[in-house]
């Protein structure tokens, strides 16, 4: 297989895992899929580093591997264990079918939105950058449709993976400095959200974000 078709394969894995995360409700499984997504992302980075023989990209790939494939999914999985199971509630506001439909629509929107970009650079990877945007939109979808706090965190992670994927596919990754800072911010953000989730369990006994509607204008 050529390098570029491997990249295409990894991108497909990214998108598919995103779609599955959106339609699954089981946190542990979402964690695994998230890990798969991180691996795919790291794979893209490594493939590109190999192709362009760039040390910076190798480091970025390593960073992605550690943060997005190991640490963050690990956090989600450990959170999944701590959270009291609430079987009676559906974890999502929409059914699986609807979720798949929305994901499909998101992909089309993303494809349409990135057409102008492919005018600028017609290489196959740039064309694949629409997958990054699609993943971002799927992330937004997860963010909105999941009821549980951790579900929203997962959505946020998918969204961020999408942005990273967009960066790799379109422009050989963002500069190291930005990636470093971005990963650090992401890590902190997830840690804080995790800590807040823990507090939610203590204070409310649930992590259903629909319960969080005391503040507001009525």
């Amino acid at each position: 297989m050529t390098n570029s078709s491997l990249i295409d394969l990894a991108s497909a894995a990214l998108l598919l895992s995103g779609v599955f995360i959106a339609s699954y409700n089981d946190l542990a499984r979402q964690g695994s899929l998230l890990r798969l997504q991180g691996l795919a992302l790291a794979a893209i980075a490594f493939l590109m580093a190999f192709e362009h023989n760039s040390l910076e990209l190798w480091i970025v790939g390593l960073l992605v591997l550690v943060v997005r494939a190991i640490v963050l999914p690990g956090l989600v999985k450990s959170a999944a264990k701590r959270i009291p199971t609430e079987k009676d509630r559906s974890h999502s506001r929409v059914s699986n079918t609807t979720s798949l439909l929305i994901s499909g629509a998101s992909t089309i929107v993303a494809y349409l939105a990135t057409i102008p970009l492919s005018h600028l650079d017609s290489s196959s990877t740039t064309k694949a950058s629409s997958i990054g945007l699609a993943l971002v939109l799927i992330g937004v979808q997860i963010l909105i449709t999941k009821r549980m706090a951790v579900g929203q965190i997962v959505g946020f992670l998918v969204l961020d993976n999408g942005i990273a994927a967009f960066g790799f596919l379109a422009t050989l990754g963002v500069p190291l400095l930005l990636e470093l800072g971005g990963s650090l911010d992401l890590l902190f953000a997830i840690l804080i959200m995790g800590a807040l989730t823990d507090r939610m369990i203590v204070k409310f006994g649930t992590t259903d974000v629909d319960e969080l509607s005391e503040l507001g204008d009525r």
Partner: peptide, 26 residues
């Protein structure tokens, strides 16, 4: 706690969109 959660989610979402924008500038 509720406020902090909303703050973190909404702002992270928004700021992520900005990151996408920055990537496109790049």
């Amino acid at each position: 706690l509720e406020a902090a959660w909303k703050y973190a989610m909404i702002c992270s979402f928004g700021i992520a969109i900005a990151l996408l924008g920055v990537s496109i500038v790049y």
